[in-house]
Each structure stands twice: as C-alpha cells, then as structure tokens.
Design a protein around this nucleic acid. Structure first.
Length: 136
DNA sequence: GCCAACGTTGGC
DNA sequence: GCCAACGTTGGC
C-alpha cells in the first residue's frame, strides 16, 4: 500500500466536486515526473487531495479506484495517462501549507521541495502525521 | 547538445 | 499582479 498526494486548483476542480461524483477520472497531468508517479499508483492506495491557489491546504482523502489508462483528452498525443479516484472523507481540519511547513514530521514532503509537482508519493510517516493532525 | 526565449505553476 | 522555479521548444 502506497500513499500519494495530488494537487488541484479548486476553482477548476475541487475535492467537493469529486465527492459529488463519488468516483471520477483524474486526468490532465502533463508533466513526465507526475505522470510516472501516476503510473505507479495501485488500486486501493490512499490519496490526499491538496488545493492549490487560494486554499493552499490538504482538504480530503480519496482512494485509487482505477489504475492508469490512456488519458482520453490528449488529442493526438499518446503519452499521457489518467487514473480514477474515489472520494473518501473530507478532513475535519484542513492541513494548510503553513502548518505543513511548521511541522517537523512533514519537512521531507515533496510538496515543500518541488512546488510545481502535481502528483507525488507521501511517506507513511507523513501520511499518518497528517491523518492525526486532521482528526480525520 | 547547448542555451536563450518562452510558457506554466503556484506561492506571496 | 509579480516573480521564482521549472519545463519545453527551437535555432544554432
């Protein structure tokens, strides 16, 4: 079992949009490093959802429900992939970027090191720290 | 194969 | 709105 974090702009697609649909495609990843992580995701992996932009916080938890398949919206390209996520619960307390920066156990998160990466693995320790802090 | 120019993301 | 940090593109 692996843990992950995905980013989204809430104005474009928010965690509550995913909750409304329950299960939905996670597509539009157009960065090789992020794509490679996407392809490593396995069914049942747990995925933290982060809102970039105004929120700047981890807001929800989802589960990988379908492993990678070709992104249907890539036109003539054939190198991009998508997965499907199933919404689990929203966090009782969102974990803001500011909080992450202040928390010792979360200093190694790729979120802090590669601000532009949109799909990234999360260590078990970081995941459990976030779960605890969010009163999930 | 290098690098300048340009585009995008995302925090501030 | 600005800018830093990247990633990509294209001329040489």
């Amino acid at each position: 079992m692996q843990y992950w974090l995905v980013k989204t702009e809430p104005e474009t697609y928010s965690f509550s949009d995913l909750q409304k649909k329950v299960e939905d495609i996670w597509d539009g990843v157009r960065n090789y490093q992020a794509r490679n992580f996407l392809m490593e995701m396995k069914k049942g992996d747990l995925v933290l959802v982060y809102h970039s932009g105004k929120d700047k916080a981890i807001v929800g938890l989802a589960e990988l429900s379908k492993e990678h398949f070709p992104d249907p919206n890539q036109g003539d390209d054939d190198r991009w992939y998508a997965v499907k996520l199933k919404a689990k619960q929203g966090l009782k307390k969102n974990i803001s970027l500011e909080t992450i920066k202040k928390t010792e156990e979360l200093q190694n998160m790729l979120l802090l090191k590669q601000s532009r990466l949109s799909v990234m693995p999360v260590s078990e320790m970081a995941f459990e720290t976030i779960v605890k802090m969010s009163s999930l």
